[in-house]
Design a protein around this nucleic acid. Structure first.
Length: 537
RNA sequence: GCGGGUGUAGCUCAGUGGUAGAGCGUCACGUUGCCAACGUGAAUGUCGUCGGUUCAAAUCCGAUCACCCGCUCCA
């Protein structure tokens, strides 16, 4: 901050590397954006609550997403308005949902810790180089699959032990997966980063899902899980939506809601929380069109984040490398992350939204596990019948999934908006896009007498009928009230003064420039409507 | 999970064994007529929590919780 203080606010605003996360967190607490969950009990790791301003900010962000994705969707690559419907499914579903999705069984990969090097490894990524023949009490060397350095190290150590040169005689050693080494032999095992044997722990499972029980008896037969993603609720209701809402492929189903993951390390304020909210679209299309729709959503979602105020320099698109791809995306057209440059990731970026081609993986999995046909009959495809009509085609649609983190979105918006400015009394202001600003406007009587409060109250009441959150405040000096609004990120203030009583004009004060102008009191509503991007008249 | 750091008023922090502090903010009254103005006054703390040492602990010791940083992890 000491550097930032000497810098022009515009420079600081554009450069998150100059913003202090501590200062942003302090403001979030001070102004009631974000509180630590269960704070009076000492807090609870990985959980955060939203205060009055934060709750409104988050609601505005979610409303903007719902508005732009569901109620007023964009024009697709085929030139037509995208077809989209909403859905709201349960946090708790049948346990088999998570078996089908691969969340149970497939992904609670066991980990192995090294007591000496403090390293942690995926057990299925570790291989062991051992000498054959008389194995008793001889050391074995673990290395990481695909990691040449650790593999070379293991061979070098083995060569040293066998007192031979590299390459090792092939008949004296072999390589086996760690899983084949019995626990009783771990005392002979040298870890990939250790220099003595016996430092590796036994493989331990990490289950990232929250476990709970359905029913008051709570026996092991009643185990259920809190959803780790909202997506599966969409997949398992896919058939109902198709059967009841007249949608036709290509179309999307949108849903937002809480999801839960027992993150190993909750970190970076709300960025990695154990309870978080997702805004997900599952877009269903024919396999032949998947690449086209994937590119469309990837680009459109990036543009959307820009439209709500995330600066272009701090936002980037990153295509995943092949080896990064999740199990469900291996067959797809690709995965990319929309990333924001947070102060705590600077100069790197952190994921805001992932856009993935999930192929038909999920529908296929549920079709198999539930033994229910989930195929879609497309009447516009297939070869032509003699009457000139297509015969139709039956298929499992491909899925393009733009999956955004609502809390990460709020955090990015907070970081982007945070603008130190030593020249103004508040020393900082929150430069929210008017569309998502929690307080849209403030109405102040310049002084609390001479008929001004009455006029201000009337204007505020009129505005409140149409716009969310209009602040009124008649206490203390006008400068103090402007400063408070700067920290809350209120974009516009309207001040009633002596002249208002004579000529019906008010002072309009702009947050970002601190400029003032006079406009007619009857123009205030239409001005706000235009600035907030709402229909007026 | 490991290592380092931090935890005192709403916020930022001072306080190294002897009665709990400052600035800012908040609130009230007065004044003020466009940028945290001024005056007067007020409220606010089990010094993160629990335990130990001591005549006496915010201060020393132990444990624990939370947050920050670095590893690790993040389907």
């Amino acid at each position: 901050m000491s550097d930032a203080a000497k810098t022009k606010s515009a420079d600081v605003a554009a450069d998150p590397g100059r913003k202090s996360m501590d200062d942003i967190m302090a403001l979030c607490k001070r102004r009631g954006f974000i509180f630590q969950a269960s704070e009076i009990y000492g807090g609870i790791n990985g959980f955060w609550d939203y205060g009055p301003l934060g709750a409104q900010l988050k609601k505005n962000l979610k409303d903007a997403w719902w508005q732009d994705c569901v109620l007023s969707p964009p024009t697709g690559p085929d030139g037509r308005e995208v077809e989209m419907v909403g859905l709201d499914t349960c946090i708790i579903q049948h346990p088999k949902v998570w078996e089908a999705s691969g969340h149970v069984g497939g992904f609670n990969d066991p980990r192995v810790d090294c007591k000496q090097s403090k390293g942690r490894y995926r057990a299925d990524h570790l291989f062991v180089l051992q000498s054959t023949g008389k194995m008793l009490a001889k050391p074995m060397y673990a290395f990481i699959e695909g990691d040449e350095e650790s593999e070379k190290r293991a061979y070098k150590l083995m060569a040293k032990y066998l007192k031979t040169n590299l390459p090792l005689p092939p008949d004296q050693t072999d390589v086996v997966p760690l899983a084949q080494i019995p626990l009783s032999e771990y005392h002979r095992l040298v870890g990939p980063d250790a220099n003595e044997p016996g430092t590796l722990t036994e493989p331990r499972a990490f289950n990232l899902m929250f476990k709970t029980y359905v029913g008051a008896t709570a026996s092991e037969d009643d185990v259920a899980y809190l959803r780790p993603e909202t997506a599966q609720g969409i997949f398992i209701q896919f058939k109902n939506v198709v059967d009841t809402s007249r949608v036709r492929v290509p179309f999307g189903i949108a849903q937002m809601g809480k999801a839960f993951r027992n993150e190993v390390t909750p970190r970076n304020f709300t960025f990695r929380s154990r309870e978080f909210e997702q805004m997900e679209i599952e877009f269903f299309c024919h396999k032949d069109d998947a690449a086209k729709w994937y590119a469309f959503w990837r680009d459109w979602r990036l543009a959307w984040w820009r439209s709500i105020g995330l600066g272009s320099d701090n936002l980037q698109l990153r295509e995943h490398d092949k080896d990064e791809l999740a199990h469900y995306a291996k067959e797809g057209a690709g995965t990319s992350d929309i990333e924001y440059r947070f102060p705590f990731t600077y100069p790197g970026f952190g994921e805001l939204e992932g856009v993935a081609d999930r192929s038909d993986y999920d529908l296929r999995q549920h079709q198999e596990h539930a033994r229910v046909k989930l195929e879609y009959f497309d009447t516009e495809r297939g070869e032509l019948a003699p009457n000139g009509q297509p015969k139709g085609e039956r298929y499992l649609p491909n899925v393009i999934e733009p999956s955004a983190g609502a809390d990460r979105g709020v955090l990015a918006v907070l970081c982007e908006a945070y603008t130190p400015d030593d020249t103004r009394p508040s020393k900082v202001y929150m430069k929210f896009h008017p569309r998502i600003a929690p307080i849209k406007a403030a109405v102040f009587p310049l002084v609390n007498k001479d008929g001004m409060p009455e006029v201000a109250d009337k204007l505020a009441r009129d505005l409140k009928k149409r716009y969310s959150i209009i602040e009124t405040d008649a206490k203390q000096s006008i400068g103090k009230r402007y400063a408070r609004m700067d920290e809350a990120g209120c974009p516009f203030c309207f001040t009633i003064d002596g002249d208002t009583l004579k000529d019906n004009t008010v002072t309009l004060r702009h947050r970002d420039t601190q400029e003032q102008e006079r406009i007619g009191i009857d123009k205030v509503a239409s001005f706000l409507g235009e600035k907030l991007g709402l229909q007026e008249n």
